[in-house]
Amino acid sequence: MLTENGREDPRVRRTKRILKETFLQLLHLKGYRRITVKDIVEHADYNRATFYHHYKYKEELANEVVQEKLNGFTTAFREPLTNMNTYSIQRLSPSDIIVFDYIIQNADFFMLYKHSEAIPGSEDQLLQTIIELFQEINNQPVKPVVGHYNSQIIIQAYGLMGLILEWVKSEFSTPPAYLNQQLISILHFQSATTQAKGETIFV
């Protein structure tokens, strides 16, 4: 439901927020496949009609949660890189990086990556998001499916993905400042090779 100025009604936002928060809580308690709509509404103290007013099924709610969190991840990753080019990236400071702070602020979602397929397909979606971010930095066209990627982008994307997954599995035991420095190293490696010729292409 939208208000007259085209914005979502605050009551709708609140209801959907509670449903999403409840869904994330249940994911940690029960796992994705065991969660039912009945579980969600009972824990959220709503009725089925309220749920079905906003979502057709559990999968639609799950997809919205993933997209919302990954959109936030994208925004946080881009924040210090706005209007930067290959050369200005070299001057990026670890203190400029905020993406790992975002992950901690949304630990209820990212801690799900400790478990394989906590939300089916979400790990692949995170990887694809990271690949597209590195394509964006390197001025490469974003492809809708995996294939024919610049080898350096693949190296960078899997490097950051592995860094995030290991950090999550350690329950954020390493300070974000250390991860910031690691991401800087990844970005510097990317920018140092962006002018290289005869690059290998992954198919």
Rank of each mutant, 00 (worst) to 15 (best):
K143D: 08
K143L: 13
K143A: 11
K143V: 13
P144V: 01
P144D: 09
P144R: 01
V145K: 11
V145N: 12
V146S: 14
V146W: 14
G147H: 09
G147D: 13
H148Y: 14
H148A: 15
H148K: 15
H148N: 15
Y149G: 07
N150P: 04
N150K: 01
S151D: 11
S151W: 07
S151A: 10
Q152S: 12
Q152E: 15
I153M: 03
I153V: 02
I153D: 00
I153L: 05
I153P: 03
I154T: 13
I154F: 02
I155K: 05
Q156I: 06
Q156S: 12
Q156M: 09
Q156R: 06
A157T: 06
A157G: 04
A157L: 05
Y158I: 12
Y158D: 05
G159W: 01
G159I: 07
L160R: 05
M161R: 12
G162F: 05
G162S: 04
L163F: 03
I164G: 00
I164S: 01
I164D: 05
I164V: 00
L165F: 07
L165A: 02
E166Y: 13
E166V: 10
E166I: 09
W167V: 02
W167A: 04
W167N: 00
V168W: 09
K169R: 14
K169F: 02
S170G: 07
S170T: 12
F172G: 09
S173N: 11
S173M: 09
T174N: 10
T174R: 10
T174D: 12
P175V: 00
P175A: 00
P175Y: 03
P175N: 07
P176F: 00
P176T: 08
A177H: 08
A177K: 11
A177M: 09
A177D: 10
A177G: 04
